[in-house]
Simulated assay, not measured.
Amino acid sequence: MNGDQLHQKAIEIASNLPFSQKTHPFGPEYEVFKILEKIFILTTEVAGVKMINVKCDPYKSQEYQELYSFIIPGYHMNKKHWISITPHRNLTSDLLQDLIHDSYDLVVKK
């Protein structure tokens, strides 16, 4: 999945979650999705690399980072509770959907 596909698919997934709201609190270049006024996904681009940030359970975060080279500590976020997902040929739509749904669920539960 390339950077454009990553952003498009992430936006599609986040838009279809119940009561999610797309906002632009950091400017038009960032797509931010919230549930209950809390962010659960943020699209961004850093040094020409498109990526998304999602909330993640700290234990799962460590596991994901060990399993997948394209999952790194959350760029410009709390590294314990957020991960960044970068484009990669091994990134599947199913994994992306699971990560976004988990982020959404973490925010709703809190």
Rank of each mutant, 00 (worst) to 15 (best):
Glu29Arg: 07
Gln62Arg: 08
Ile13Lys: 10
Glu29Cys: 11
Pro58Asn: 11
Ser20Glu: 00
Ile71Arg: 05
Thr86Trp: 01
Leu106Tyr: 09
Leu6Ala: 12
Tyr30Phe: 13
Thr44Pro: 03
Ile72Cys: 04
Thr23Cys: 04
Tyr75Asp: 07
Phe40Ala: 09
Glu12Phe: 11
Lys60Asp: 12
Ser20Lys: 01
Trp82Tyr: 08
Asp4Cys: 11
His7Ala: 10
Asp4Thr: 15
Val32Ile: 15
Asn53Gln: 08
Glu63Thr: 15
Phe26Leu: 14
Gly48Pro: 10
Glu45Phe: 01
Thr92His: 14
Ser84Lys: 12
Tyr68Asp: 00
His101Ser: 11
Tyr30Gln: 05
His81Ser: 06
Leu42Ile: 13
Ser103Gly: 12
Ser84Ile: 11
Ile85Lys: 08
Asp105Phe: 01
Tyr75His: 13
Gly48Ser: 08
Glu37Ala: 07
Pro58Lys: 15
Val32Cys: 03
Lys109Gly: 09
Asn2Lys: 12
Val32Gly: 06
Phe19Glu: 13
Met1Ser: 12
Gly27Thr: 15
Asp94Ser: 14
Gly48His: 04
Met1Leu: 13
Ala47Phe: 09
Asn90Gly: 02
Thr23Ile: 06
Gln21Trp: 00
Ser20Phe: 01
Pro73Trp: 04
Arg89Gly: 09
Trp82Asp: 07
Ser61Tyr: 02
Ile39Glu: 00
Tyr64Lys: 02
Lys55His: 03
Ser61Arg: 12
Asp105Arg: 02
Gln65Tyr: 03
Tyr64Gln: 06
Glu31Ile: 09
Pro25Lys: 14
Lys80His: 10
Pro25Ala: 14
Tyr59Leu: 06
Ser103Val: 04
Leu106Gly: 08
Ile13Ser: 06
Gly74Lys: 08
Ile52Val: 10
Met51Cys: 07
Pro87Cys: 05
Ile35Val: 14
Lys9Ala: 13
Ile100Ala: 06
Lys55Trp: 08
Lys9Glu: 15
Leu106Arg: 02
Val49Tyr: 00
Tyr59Arg: 07
Tyr104Arg: 02
Lys55Gly: 06
Cys56Pro: 03
Thr92Tyr: 15
Asn2Pro: 15
Val107Asp: 00
Val49Pro: 06
Met77Arg: 04
Thr43Met: 13
Glu45Asp: 12
Pro18Gly: 00
His76Gln: 06
Val107Ser: 03
Ile83Pro: 10
Leu95Arg: 10
Glu63Ile: 09
Ile35Asn: 08
Thr44Cys: 04
Ile11Ala: 15
His24Val: 10
Ser20Cys: 10
Leu42Phe: 00
Asn90Trp: 07
Asn78His: 02
